[in-house]
Design a binder for these strands. Structure first.
Lengths: 196, 196
DNA sequence: CACTAAACGGACCGGGCGGTCAACTTGCTA
DNA sequence: TAGCAAGTTGACCGCCCGGTCCGTTTAGTG
């Protein structure tokens, strides 16, 4: 059998992921591996022992976050009102991103299979939430889970552009965007729904 | 009197701005000054003669773009249907950004007074468009020009996240978001409207 | 407790970046 | 057309980054 990982290695990996998430959130993509290592209280070499490249580290962070969101979405699937459940899910997604904006990490780790797998799971949960909401007439029936996955990020993105904004400004834009998903649509949807 | 700038200097400045916009659009914020100079057919030193720092160059690009949009918005102020005018303006804004996404330049040049001035002019035009649309009942009356300035960027932002997307996918999200602005609101707006 | 493979640390390397500068060229003016 | 300020150029500087490497430390094992 393969040996179990050493206890200190497990601990350091966790410290590294947490430190990296904080550092990226504060300094953006340009945060240096050396700073991350220092923040985790670890040597720079240790970072590269756990994650072959900076991009691998980024991917690992993203996978963790998407897994958290997936769990949340799956837990909301048996809620009574499907519209409320969807709204609540979108709120949770916005809150996660609000706490630490790591959206810029996505482009650095496109095309990593582990990230793709995590995103597929997330999309599956959202698909189910949207389908139920559409059945119950809470949202228009021509939007897809992918639409919602994409729009999910918009409220915080929009609110972030305001320098000294109230911390819950994103709620304002979530309300507006969710209103745009209602069944009584004024505008037909141009362009086909995207896939993935 | 102060001397007029030399003809070649004027030409090079224009070449530089165009080359820089292209280069940034293709390579992101990390595009190097050396590459921009090469693309403009000019020495690296010339870049710094025209723009003291990389950030000054970025600011100049942004000012140009915002001025273009402002002009467009101001021209739409005497259109018959204010709702259509607003929709058309948002379409123009999305198209500009779709052609070349330079959104990431904004954070590099926050707090530059020239950029602030250009943005103020743009905001003024949007305020007027939104006020007219609200008067005519095309949009809900509790949204502000600032809201629209912020939301304006969302459709392209959202559509960009899809790798091989149709080039006009953003129209889909513009339709959804514009629907969210209609007067028949389902959700009250949480959080106050932001300023600036 | 002794031994070893796994894990760690940080000096080190090559490369690319933003920005400077002094020698050179050129458009404008009188 | 002569003269010069304005403009151009690319080699150069110092810095910091991602990634490597090897001597040292340490957690688990029998």
């Amino acid at each position: 059998m393969t040996r179990l990982p050493r206890a200190d290695a497990v601990r350091n990996r966790r410290l590294l992921l947490a430190a990296a998430a904080d550092e990226f959130a504060e300094r953006g993509l340009g945060a240096s591996v050396a700073d991350i290592a220092r923040r985790a209280g670890v040597g720079k070499g240790t970072v590269f022992r756990h994650f072959a490249t900076k991009d691998d580290l980024i991917a690992a962070i993203l996978v963790d976050r998407m897994a958290d969101l997936s769990e949340r979405g799956e837990g909301l699937l048996d809620a009574g009102d499907a519209g409320d459940a969807l709204y609540e899910f979108l709120t949770a997604a916005a809150e996660q991103r609000r706490e630490r904006d790591l959206s810029f990490l996505a482009e650095a780790s496109e095309s990593m299979p582990e990230v793709a797998r995590a995103r597929d799971r997330l999309l599956k949960a959202i698909d189910a939430l949207v389908a139920r909401a559409a059945e119950q007439g809470a949202v228009r029936s021509d939007i897809t889970g992918t639409d919602v996955l994409l729009l999910m990020c918009a409220p915080v993105y929009v609110a972030e552009a305001v320098p000294g904004a109230a911390p819950d400004l994103w709620r304002r834009y979530l309300a507006i965007i969710f209103d745009g998903l209602r069944p009584e649509a004024a505008h037909p949807l141009p362009a086909e729904a995207p896939r993935l």
